[in-house]
Design a protein around this nucleic acid. Structure first.
Lengths: 244, 244
DNA sequence: CGACTCAAATTGGTCTGACCTATTACCAAT
DNA sequence: ATTGGTAATAGGTCAGACCAATTTGAGTCG
C-alpha cells in the first residue's frame, strides 16, 4: 500500500538544523509525536524504517538508533521481516527510568526482586485504600468474583489473579503503580513458570484477596498493607520451594 | 596509544557464526565480558568503537547499536569527541528492568515516583531492621554523626544525608535496594534541585534520621517503617511546595 | 619556564548505498 | 479450496565516507 506520509510534521523541520544536544532524544520525541499523531496503540505496527527516514528527514542509521533504544527500553519490539511493533504507550513527555540488577542465581534474583516488589505492592494497596472510588470498588469486586469462580481450574486462575491485582493498582490512582508492577510481573514470569496456575498456590493465596478487597473498601490502610504482605509471603514461600 | 587488543577473546569467535536469535543481546553480553575481563570500573573509558569493531569482529553499526542501547539503559554515556564511559557496573548476567512513566507535569511525575520510592525505602528499612549486623550499625552511626555535624552547613548536608541512607540500604543486605534507590535518587535529582542542601529541609527531616537509626538497631521493623515514612513525607511536602 | 595558540589526531554521530535473511503477500497450478 | 513457489517487503549487518566536538601536542610567544 505504501501509504504516503502526508503530514508535513513541523517536528522534522526543526530536526534538520539541530546538531547540538541530545539529538537522538529529539528524534525519539519526534517519533513519539509521530506515533501519537497517528494514534498508534500497543500491538500496532509502526511504519517501516525507510518510510520513517523520509518522514522525519533523518538517515536510516538515526532511525535505527532510536528504534534500537526504544527496543532496549521495552517500548517497541522489532520482528525481522515483519515490522516493528508498539508494545506500550509512548509520548514525547515520557520519562524513562531504566534499572539494572545483577544477582548470583535466578532464585536469588527473584527473591531480591520480590522484596522490592513487595514494598511497591504494599504502598499501592495503601494508596488504593485511601483513594478508591465506588467505581474502583465495583471493578475490584467483579474481578475478585471472577477469580473465585476460576481459582480451582487449571490454567485460568493466573489471568484472573492478574486482573484483580490490576484493578487494585488502578484504584491507587497513580498510574506508575500499574506500569511498574505490570512490567515487574512481566519480568518475573519471564524467569519463572507462573505458579498462579498451580492450584495449590492459588488455594493458599486467594483467601487473602477477599480480605484485601474488604480492607481497601473500608479505607483501612493498615489492614490493606497487612493483607498484601501475606499474599506476597505466599509467593516468596513458593520461590523458596522452587530450586530447579 | 592505540593499545592493541591482544586477547583472542573466545567470545568473538562464537559471534562470527551466529545469526539466529537476539544477536544484539549476544553482542551486548560479549561486550559485557570484554568489560569484565579488563576490569573496567564506573568512570572508566571503554575502547573506541572502531577498536571494538575489530575486537568483537562485528561491523561498527552493530557495536553502535548495543552501545546505543546501553546508553539508553543508563549503563554507559557517550561523549562526542572524547569517548564512551562506563556509568555503572555491568556483567553478562545483568538483568535490565527498564521502566517508563508519563505524567502531566514534572511535580506530578515526581510525586508519583516518590510514592513508589517510599514503598521501596520502607521495605528497605524493614529489611535493615531485620538483618543489620554490628558492622552495619557502626557504619550507620558514623554516617549519622557526620550528618549531624554538617546538617547546618550550606552545601554539605546533601551528601551526608545520601551517605547515611546508603548505609541503611546496605544494612538491608539486599543489593537491589541500594542499586534501585541510588538510581532513583539520581533520576530524582536530575529533575529537582536537591532540597537536601537547603537548610530548612535538612532541619525538618534530620531528626527522624536518628530515630530511624535507633529503630533499625533495636530491630523494631514497625518503627523503622514509620520513621522512614516520616522522612519521605517531608520530601513530599517539599515537592508540593515547589511549583516553579 | 610557563602559558597560550593552533593544527592534527582521535572519537562519537550521521548519511548513503549495498547486500543478507526472515516474513509476508500474491498468484498460479493442482 | 489448497498448495507451492516467487516476488515484494522489512529488519539486520556491513563498508566507506564525511561531519563535529574534543583532546593532544608541538610550536610559539611572553
Amino acid at each position: 500500500m505504501t501509504e504516503p506520509v502526508l503530514s508535513p510534521d513541523p517536528v522534522s523541520d526543526d530536526l534538520a538544523a539541530l546538531p547540538p544536544l541530545g539529538r537522538s532524544r529529539q528524534i525519539m520525541d519526534a517519533l513519539a509525536r509521530y506515533i501519537q499523531a497517528r494514534n498508534l496503540q500497543p500491538g500496532d505496527r509502526l511504519p517501516p524504517e525507510r518510510e520513517l527516514t523520509a518522514a522525519l528527514k533523518v538517515g536510516r542509521s538515526s532511525i535505527r538508533e532510536v528504534v534500537s533504544q526504544l527496543s532496549a527500553l521495552g517500548i517497541v519490539e522489532a520482528r525481522i521481516g515483519s515490522g516493528t511493533y508498539l508494545l506500550r504507550q509512548i509520548s514525547a513527555e515520557t520519562i524513562y527510568m531504566p534499572l539494572s540488577l545483577s544477582a548470583d542465581g535466578l532464585a536469588e534474583a527473584l527473591l531480591m526482586t520480590l522484596e522490592v516488589r513487595r514494598g511497591i505492592e504494599i504502598e499501592a494497596s495503601i494508596a488504593a485504600a485511601r483513594r478508591r472510588t465506588p467505581e474502583d470498588m465495583a471493578r475490584m469486586q467483579e474481578a475478585l468474583e471472577e477469580m473465585e469462580r476460576t481459582h480451582h481450574r487449571e490454567g485460568g486462575s493466573g489471568k484472573a489473579d492478574f486482573a484483580f491485582h490490576m484493578t487494585v493498582y488502578d484504584a491507587a490512582h497513580n498510574p506508575l503503580f500499574r506500569q511498574l508492577l505490570e512490567q515487574m510481573r512481566d519480568i518475573f514470569e519471564r524467569f519463572w513458570d507462573r505458579p498462579f496456575d498451580r492450584p495449590d498456590f492459588a488455594a493458599r493465596s486467594f483467601p487473602y484477596h477477599r480480605t484485601l478487597f474488604n480492607a481497601i473498601c473500608a479505607g483501612d490502610t493498615a489492614a490493606a498493607a497487612e493483607e498484601t504482605r501475606k499474599i506476597l509471603d505466599v509467593v516468596e514461600e513458593d520461590i523458596r520451594n522452587m530450586r530447579p
